[in-house]
Nucleic acid binder design. Structure first.
Length: 274
DNA sequence: CGGGCGGCCTGGAGGC
DNA sequence: TGCCTCCAGGCCGCCC
């Protein structure tokens, strides 16, 4: 579910409640996530360690611990990472649970098991294979028309797939790609070879604005997403095209359309996007 | 090499 | 009510 805004909302909601806390132990109920959970490695990395920082790279949440270990959590499509009282009953699909000091725990629940929980060394973390090929970060100035135009040169294919390619820029998934293209007036099937430089500037600006507005609204909750306190987001009511097939475009009134690109649904307005 | 697609999973929605 | 099919926000690996 979660794209960059949702992970950023999660990070911000967890930070005040996790910083300085000590992880007492970890329980692994099911190791079969996107990659098998290495329970011994996880335990030795986290046990007795204090949380010193919460970061994010692309859609990965990074929980830094003292002693050069970092927890890496990815929510996949259906993951949740929430704080609960230690004695609250284990939920279905709660695969990994971190017992904290002061009587609560951080639990990872993920019905579809596309998510990821692992421990890596903090030193050189971002050079790990999970992050090595990733493009720039949008929230710190990494998403500009310059970046997009440069990445597009010599490439072909539809601009929507291009926006979702983590080697170009990270954090944009199916929802925010649709929304950014709508706001910039770009048709999702348009080839990246046929987009003018000024349009890349506009697209970059609109993509950044969409991500930032979504964060301000607590993310998009269509089905599963919740922040670290279990709160849903509100940005779904602001979505202009995503999941609105057949509804009227708020700008021109035409019925919004749905097509399939690379096996994923794309929503757009044929009147506003060229 | 880059782009496209299937596969990984479960659950919810909708059709009959 | 139940059964069946389809679909879902990410990512990887295989294929052309």
């Amino acid at each position: 579910m979660p794209e960059l805004p949702e992970i950023e909302v999660l990070r911000r909601s967890l930070a005040p409640r996790l910083l300085g806390r000590t992880i007492v132990d970890v329980t692994v109920a099911n190791t079969a996530l996107r990659e098998p959970v290495d329970e011994p490695n996880l335990r030795s990395a986290v046990r007795g360690r204090r949380v010193t920082g919460l970061g994010r790279r692309a859609k990965y949440l990074l929980i830094d611990l003292e002693g050069d270990s970092s927890l890496v959590v990815h929510l996949g499509m259906s993951g949740r990472l929430t704080l609960a009282a230690a004695d609250e009953p284990i939920e279905k699909h709660e695969h990994v649970s971190f017992l904290l000091d002061e009587g609560d725990r951080l639990r990872f629940r993920d019905p579809r098991r596309f998510g990821l929980v692992l421990a890596l060394a903090t030193e050189g973390l971002l050079e790990d294979r999970h992050f090595g090929g990733l493009g720039p970060e949008p929230l710190v100035g990494g998403l500009t028309g310059e970046v997009l135009a440069r990445a597009a040169s010599g490439r072909r294919g539809p601009v929507k797939n291009f926006l979702m390619d983590g080697r170009v820029v990270v954090g944009i998934g199916n929802i925010y790609a649709c929304e950014a293209l709508y706001r910039a007036g770009v048709h999702p099937t348009r080839s990246v070879a046929r987009i003018a430089r000024a349009r890349w500037d506009l697209l970059a600006r609109e993509a950044c604005a969409t991500l930032e507005e979504a964060i301000a609204e607590g993310g998009t909750t269509l089905n599963d997403f919740a922040d670290g306190e279990g709160n849903s987001g509100y940005f779904q009511v602001s979505l202009a095209v995503y999941d609105r097939e057949g509804e009227a475009c708020r700008r021109c009134g035409k019925a919004l359309r749905r097509i399939v690109q690379s096996g994923r649904s794309t929503f757009y307005c044929a009147g506003c996007q060229r």
